[in-house]
Design a protein around this nucleic acid. Structure first.
Lengths: 195, 195
DNA sequence: TAATTACGATACGTTTCGTTTCGAAATGAG
DNA sequence: CTCATTTCGAAACGAAACGTATCGTAATTA
């Protein structure tokens, strides 16, 4: 084990938090294009050197800020698959219908696909929101409300993917009615008799 | 009318074509992140001033370079909704499971939503491919194969959205099995009895 | 108290941006 | 043909952001 106490001044969590808060604010107020390391330094009062000590570039700083700032979409307490899934989709749409969804898409597009931070970002923003939906479905199957689902991943893609698709393409609005339709159709797939 | 002949040296279509070809090559070889105006100028031999005369920034240059190569997904000749829709989804996945497809998605994510070029790009990439799917569904309904669909837009989102979602999020592969599942589930929604 | 480590501030050279300037090339008008 | 006009490619420019390095200071352990 390496449990020797470090010797000098400890790294400042306060500095990191100030930096992430400033980065998130810049993302929401001015957008990804304006998120520069220098802007975060100026707004947060944290030195550039410290920023580069903690993150390799502005894009990773953006991902770190979004990881903290993205609400964990987790609706609970509903009874029945359809109600639970509808609540889940409502929460997802509400969380991403703002500028946040667009900034997440831009950040993902700009991120280095190989980067470790990108993997963490995907896990947090994409995969973890899927888990809530996956659990709703598995619980409904355990209750016998639906037959055992065949391909949950594709089903989750069909529920979550359209939200990002509308963010990306902008051909239709993201609203509560849309969320409800997605949940309805997902339930239709899950309850349909299989050949 | 304003059909007076222009007086000086005519704008060079050759320069534009060289620039677009260079931009396209850079996109395919190095990705959207490396597409800078200076890189296009260096590779094409076209002056930066000429590039800025024709496009406002690197992103619009990327859209212009990609828009001509966007695959028009249009599968035809199949009989029955399920076969036709499966062929359509196979074609879509095949077209976008390429380097070009990924760059198209990245460019869409990075584009300024207000820009005129972005509108044209979206029309080409998003709307035109949706029309093929929409027609398949409407024809099936006309044949009486399915009841009149309620909300084709959301259904198309659930078929097409997951493809772009997987490109952007990269959590699962784009392959033929995925395309088939999307088509199957879409047909399930379309044929399900309604309350 | 001394050694160590991170901090904020600041300066630096580099890169990319988008603009501007320049002489050469290409066209229509006279 | 000659001139005016317009675009061309090349190059230089200032501004902005990059990523690095240096500095004196603050915080912590030995």
């Amino acid at each position: 084990m390496n449990d020797a106490k470090p010797r000098g001044r400890p790294p400042s969590t306060a500095a990191r938090e100030k930096a992430l808060a400033a980065a998130h604010a810049i993302l929401m107020e001015e957008g990804f294009g304006r998120l520069t390391v220098e802007a975060v330094a100026a707004r947060s009062g944290v030195g550039k050197a410290t920023l580069y000590r903690n993150w390799t570039n502005a894009c990773e700083l953006a991902m770190a800020a979004l990881i903290d700032g993205v609400p964990l979409v987790q609706a609970g307490g509903e009874t029945g698959l359809k109600a639970a899934l509808t609540a889940q989709m409502q929460a997802l749409v509400k969380a991403f219908a703002t500028t946040r969804g667009r900034q997440i898409a831009m950040t993902l597009a700009a991120a280095d696909p190989e980067s470790e931070m990108t993997r963490a970002f995907r896990n947090r923003v994409i995969l973890s929101s899927r888990e809530a939906g996956r659990n709703l479905i598995l619980e409904a199957a355990r209750r016998g409300e639906i037959p055992p689902p065949l391909d949950i991943d594709t089903l989750l893609d069909m529920a979550y993917g359209p939200v990002f698709y509308r963010i990306l393409a902008g051909h239709q609005p993201l609203n509560a009615a849309f969320a409800e339709r997605l949940a309805e159709n997902a339930v239709t797939i899950l309850t349909a008799p299989r050949p």
